[in-house]
Design a protein around this nucleic acid. Structure first.
Lengths: 222, 222, 222, 222
DNA sequence: GATGAATGAGTATTCATTCAT
DNA sequence: CATGAATGAATACTCATTCAT
């Protein structure tokens, strides 16, 4: 029915999608091999056949999610050329409702949580965010050179923006993704923009930048 | 010697502490009644005796954590009277390493995650954050009246600060709580301060922002 | 229905008896917890309740068998006083068909075999045989002092007799326990007697041996 | 390059060697097709391809071992011509440490044990020992005719010697193959010799025995 | 107030095997 | 000749829970 090695990745992919689905619906405790297999109409041992271990399957799921995470980002702002627009698009994306929806929050949180007691998962999350920070750093660095944003440490700015994004997502799981969520998102975006343009906040060597406020700032920082 | 009914709450508390401990060490999947009982040197059915159900025990744990969460906050800034100092203390607390440590992140995330598939838990988290937002709103409202911070919608500001806090905590679980964490925390605090004083970001009446704030800034800094 | 701690040993014993039975009937591979529980009309997890682990249950079985082994020996020759009769009874017991039957050979071999890959089981077998050798040594030593048997190293003699016994048992599993078995048993007994009395073989101080023994031999022989 | 059908026996042999190895390392329970295949770097279904069934594969292993057993014996004393030397060599071989090592005891015991619940395996063991007894009978018969050993029933003598050998091997798995083992071996050999020469023990026509033997004995002994 | 006995559903994983390729 | 896909029964063991004591 199938050629030997060709279909394996497809099948694995298929399994991961069902894992994803079940994990979203039933949570960590409810995501047994039996249920995942059941959702596929397939025997549980088949999952073992492909992944050897539930842990490895989970690892594969994390990879799968990390990959989607990256693709989402790239797919969104990949081809915008005008720097201003590009910055705007990035922030719009990060602090909007849509971003949050792309990877199911409960699945994402499940995986992140599993990282607490599984070093390998934790590592993958670190890598994922590290790549994310790299990409943002590059963006910010470029914008800085173009004079769109102020002089600053791009990496720090990236960290800050990511942390904010995650805060928004997290808080969204509490307050829902209604108007209140949008409001927080807008404020966050504005805060980020202010920092990027005026730079009252980001510490680091290049706190020179804007004329106003900077003197104060030096004192105010920890 | 106390009457039996008197000792029940103590025993319950004791159980919850062990639950907390085991949940931190072993994670959601590893936190069975048997293990918790084992950690107490007690028979599993005793936990059932007190809580009837694991689910109810989990609910009690969430309450227990929510309570600690609140106490931490209050204990920290409860008796500072000078408004400027108070603002400073609040922000310092929220964006510092210490805050994060107070409630074990893995336990906190575990409970938060469980809320995804358990309405009752979710409700408690909403309540907890709602109370948190209330408290911050009150603070900000008072500071606004005193002219320490600019005109704004206190509730929105509270949401923003909370979301940021949670973003910092979350990101801390990824990048660790070293210097990088501190840097993000500092920047976040600065961003929050800027918004509170200059208000470039928070929408609402005073999105203008202006020169005024800078003076405060000098005073407010740690 | 039952007092807490009283009945546990009884229940354990009961389980071991069923384990013994199933192991005899179905062999190592066929002795699953499920089958043993099934043979008791009880749920498999009950066995775990009492023994925690199949391995520990197996260990307990080995102990149980070792104990029976010892009891069989003692029960047989415990109260015979006349030294000659005592020697005769011991050898008669060891090299007879009955001895072999007392502990089911297939169960015994199963346990012994498991010792190859389980240090704990192996240890218990060593201990069991060590005790056995001790008892025989004492017997032989006493008989030596009484002049019933020749001068010799009792421990060596014990080892030899035990090894012979086991050889007989083993060979019995091949050739069956019919006349041929009896014949081998008789010859072995005779060989043992010869060594004990004449001592042509057993090395140690008195490998001389003498005419004397033959008289006894004739009397003592079957 | 050989034709496919030619290579089959080689491949089978190869498989059996790995089976042997795995059985020695992992024991009966641990010897799954998967592990054996894994040890060969081959897919489990290949073993089925060659042997149809695990049971048949096990049977083939028993045959393989029986054959090695026989070859060991023949290879050892096949070409010695002098009767006295021949007798000496046989006993030396049977009661020495080396014999035991030739076929891994744990593998041998595994197969023997499996015979308890598998008639086919049991049959092969009986055949194997039967052949062994035949060979020894022939030897003893010849020696008897030559007057090297006393008048006796060769078959009985063979049984006795085999049983002793197996007892030594068995006991060796308990006490190890150190000095104590050697001592038991020596005593056994001596006992066997005594019986062969003096014949105090072996029933049958010649239970008389005589002084003569001792001289030979001394010579023949180790 | 606390424990032990007992259960039954559920866990991941292993197993030998079949079939198609 | 050899492998991969797939199965279904079986494995030891864990789990939350009930009940009697």
């Amino acid at each position: 029915m199938a050629r030997p090695s060709d279909r394996a990745p497809i099948r694995k992919q298929e399994i991961l999608e069902h894992f994803y689905k079940v994990l979203g619906e039933e949570g960590i405790e409810g995501s047994s091999l039996a249920k995942i297999a059941g959702s596929m109409g397939v025997h549980p041992s088949l999952l073992i056949h492909y992944f050897s271990t539930k842990e490895q399957m989970t690892l594969a799921l994390v990879d799968y999610i990390a990959q989607q995470y990256g693709e989402t980002y790239l797919g969104w702002i990949g081809d915008i050329e005008d720097p201003q627009e590009r910055l705007s698009a990035i922030l719009e994306m990060l602090f909007s409702r849509d971003w949050m929806v792309y990877v199911d929050q409960s699945v994402f949180n499940a995986c992140h949580y599993l990282g607490f007691h599984n070093k390998e998962i934790h590592k993958r999350f670190r890598r994922m965010y590290s790549r994310f920070a790299d990409m943002l750093s590059v963006e910010f660095g470029r914008l800085m050179e173009l004079g769109v944003v102020r002089e600053m440490e791009p990496r720090q700015m990236a960290d800050l923006v990511i942390a904010m994004t995650e805060g928004l997502d997290f808080y969204g799981t509490i307050i829902g993704t209604g108007r209140r969520f949008d409001s927080v998102g807008r404020n966050m975006k504005q805060a980020a923009l202010t920092l990027l343009l005026d730079g009252a906040g980001a510490d680091g060597p290049a706190s020179g930048g804007g004329k106003r406020g900077d003197a104060e700032c030096r004192k105010t920082g920890t």
